[in-house]
C-alpha cells in the first residue's frame, strides 16, 4: 500500500473504529477562516459526503500522487514478458473482459446486431466477451440480439460524452436505458463541476443516476484525459466510489489521451484502498486507446500487481474497446497455428 504513510503523521489524535480505516486518508482537515487547519476525524465514510466542505476536505486530504513514481511503476510493469501458455491464458481472459463498444454517430441497428453476433462468438473457440456497449437508443436492438446468451448490454447515458446537460435529462436517459433492458449504465461525471471544485454537485449527480439505475450496474466515467492531474484522478475515483459506483471507468474514448497505464494504476490503487477501508469492492474499466493484445496484457499485469487477483475477472475488470478484439483474436490464432495472422481473415468492426 504505497500511500498509507500519510497516516503516520502523529499530529492528529485518532479514534479509528477499525484498523481497516487506519491510514485510508480519512482524516478530514477542514479549512476555517484564514486557512487555519482544523483536523477532525470521521468514523464512517458516509459522513464525508455530509456537506460540500467535508467532501472537499476529504478529497483534498487524500495523499498526493507521486507522478514520476506512478509513471515509472506503470512503465516497469509494462515490461513483463508474458509468453506461451500464460499468454494464451491472458488472451482468453482479456477476450472475456472486453466491453465491445460502438459509440459513433453513424451507428445503425444492423451494425449493432453484427457486433452482438461477434460478441457471442468472437471466432474460433474463443470465449464470449463480457458486454456490448452502445448508445441508449440502440439498447433494444442489442437486448434483442443478445437475449439469453450471457453477454451483458451496457449503455452510455447522461449526455455522453460531454455530460453537459441538466440532471433531469441525465436521469431520464438512464431510466429509459434501464427500462429498455440495459444491464449496465456508463455515466460521465460533470468534469466542469469537478474541475471548478463543486464536488458535491458531481456527487449528487452520481447518487441520482445510481438511484435511477435500480438493479443495473453503474459505471462512472471519470474522463481522465480532461482531469489534468493524477491527484484529480485519485480524487475523482474516491468521489465516484463514495457516491456508489459499481465500476470506475477511465474515459469516454472521445478524448485523447485516454486509458494510459499510470491512470489505470492510480484507479486500481484507489479501488484496492477503498475495499480495505469499507469492505466494498469496486470494478475498474480502462477504455479508449487500448488497441493491441500487448496493451491488454499490460493492463492485466497492472491489475494483478496492484489490486490483486480478486479483480482478475470480468465481474471486476473490463476493457472498453472496439478494435482490440480483432487483435486479441489474431494473436490467439498466431498462438494456435504458429503463423502470423492477417486482418483479412477477421470481421471488420
Amino acid at each position: 500500500m504505497p500511500y498509507l504513510w500519510y497516516a503516520g503523521t502523529p499530529a492528529i489524535p485518532r479514534t479509528w473504529g477499525t484498523t481497516a480505516l487506519r491510514g485510508s486518508g480519512l482524516e478530514v482537515e477542514a479549512l476555517v477562516g484564514d486557512a487555519v487547519g482544523v483536523s477532525t476525524v470521521t468514523t464512517s465514510l458516509t459522513d464525508v459526503a455530509s456537506s460540500d466542505t467535508a467532501l472537499r476536505a476529504f478529497l483534498h486530504g487524500l495523499p498526493g500522487v507521486d507522478r514520476v513514481g506512478a509513471d515509472q511503476r506503470a512503465a516497469m510493469l509494462g515490461t513483463r514478458s508474458i509468453k506461451t501458455t500464460a499468454k494464451a491464458q491472458a488472451i482468453d481472459l482479456a477476450i472475456s473482459m472486453v466491453d465491445l463498444t460502438t459509440l459513433e454517430g453513424a451507428d445503425t441497428a444492423g451494425k449493432v446486431r453484427a457486433m452482438c453476433a461477434k460478441a457471442v462468438r468472437p471466432g474460433g473457440d474463443a470465449p464470449r466477451v463480457a458486454a456490448v456497449c452502445v448508445y441508449p437508443d440502440l439498447v433494444p436492438v442489442a437486448v434483442g440480439a443478445l437475449g439469453g446468451t450471457g453477454v451483458k448490454v451496457a449503455s452510455v447515458a447522461t449526455a455522453f460524452p460531454s455530460g453537459r446537460s441538466s440532471l433531469d435529462v441525465k436521469v431520464g436517459e438512464t431510466t429509459a436505458a434501464v427500462a429498455a433492458g440495459a444491464d449496465e449504465i456508463d455515466m460521465v461525471i460533470d468534469r466542469g463541476a469537478f474541475l471548478s471544485g463543486r464536488y458535491m454537485k458531481v456527487y449528487d449527480e452520481i447518487v441520482a443516476v445510481k438511484a435511477a439505475c435500480g438493479a443495473a450496474h453503474l459505471k462512472v466515467i471519470l474522463e481522465t484525459g480532461e482531469l489534468a492531474t493524477y491527484d484529480n484522478v485519485r480524487r475523482a475515483s474516491w468521489l465516484a466510489m463514495l457516491a456508489g459506483a459499481d465500476f470506475i471507468k477511465t474515459s469516454t474514448g472521445k478524448v485523447s489521451p485516454a486509458a494510459t497505464p499510470p491512470v489505470t494504476l492510480i484507479m486500481l490503487e484507489a479501488v484496492r484502498d477503498f475495499r480495505d477501508a469499507t469492505g466494498r469492492q469496486v470494478g475498474v474499466k480502462p477504455a479508449g486507446g487500448i488497441r493491441t493484445a500487448k496493451d491488454a496484457i499490460k493492463n492485466l499485469v497492472l491489475v494483478n500487481e496492484t489490486a490483486g487477483d480478486d479483480w482478475l475477472s470480468p465481474d471486476w475488470f473490463r476493457l472498453g474497446a472496439s478494435s482490440l478484439l480483432n487483435d486479441l483474436l489474431m494473436q490467439r490464432q498466431k498462438l494456435s497455428t504458429g503463423r502470423y495472422a492477417g486482418p483479412d481473415y477477421f470481421t471488420l468492426d
Binding site: G338, R339, Y340, A341, G342, P343, D344, Y345
Partner: peptide, 9 residues
C-alpha cells in the same frame, strides 16, 4: 518460412 506463412502477405 515466416514470411511465406504470414497471413497478411
Amino acid at each position: 518460412p515466416w514470411l511465406a506463412g504470414h497471413m497478411d502477405v
